[in-house]
Amino acid sequence: MKKNLFIQRSDKKKNVLEKLVLVCIGGVIGFLNGFFGGGGGMVCVPTLEKVLKLDNKRSHATAIAVIFPLSLVSCAVYIFKGAIQSLPLLTVGLGVLVGGIGGSIALKFLPSKVIRIIFAVLMLAGGVRLII
C-alpha cells in the first residue's frame, strides 16, 4: 500500500516535469518565431517528432496548429507597433497565396531531395548575405 502511494506520487511528479518541459520547448519556439517573424515551424517539426514521437506527416500538420496561435500573438504585436505597411502586404500576400496553392499541388510531383538542396542553398545564400 505504501509502495503504491509512492509510485503514484512519483508518477505525478513525472507528469508535472513533462508538462514543464513542454512549456519550455514552447517558450523557445514562441520566442524564435516572434523574434524572427517565422521559422518557428522549422524548429517545431523536428521537435514534435522527437518529443511527442509523431511521424513526419503528423508532425508537419501539428506544427502548423502549434505555430498558428503563436504567430497570431506575434502578428498582433507587429501590427500594434506599426511594423506592417498595407501596400507591400497586399502584393506580396497575393504572391504567397497563389504560390502556396502551387506549392501544395507540386508537392506530389517534385523530387523532394533536389528541392531540399535548392531550398538549403537559397537559405544559406540569404543568410550569409544578410549577415554581411
Binding site: 513542454l22 512549456v23 519550455c24 520547448i25 514552447g26 517558450g27 523557445v28 519556439i29 514562441g30 520566442f31 524564435l32 518565431n33 516572434g34 523574434f35 524572427f36 502549434v66 496561435p69 503563436l70 504567430s71 500573438v73 506575434s74 504585436v77 507587429y78
Partner: peptide, 10 residues
C-alpha cells in the same frame, strides 16, 4: 509557453 515568449520575442 509559446504564446508568452512570442510576445517577448516580438
Amino acid at each position: 509557453g509559446g504564446v508568452v515568449f512570442a510576445v517577448g520575442g516580438s
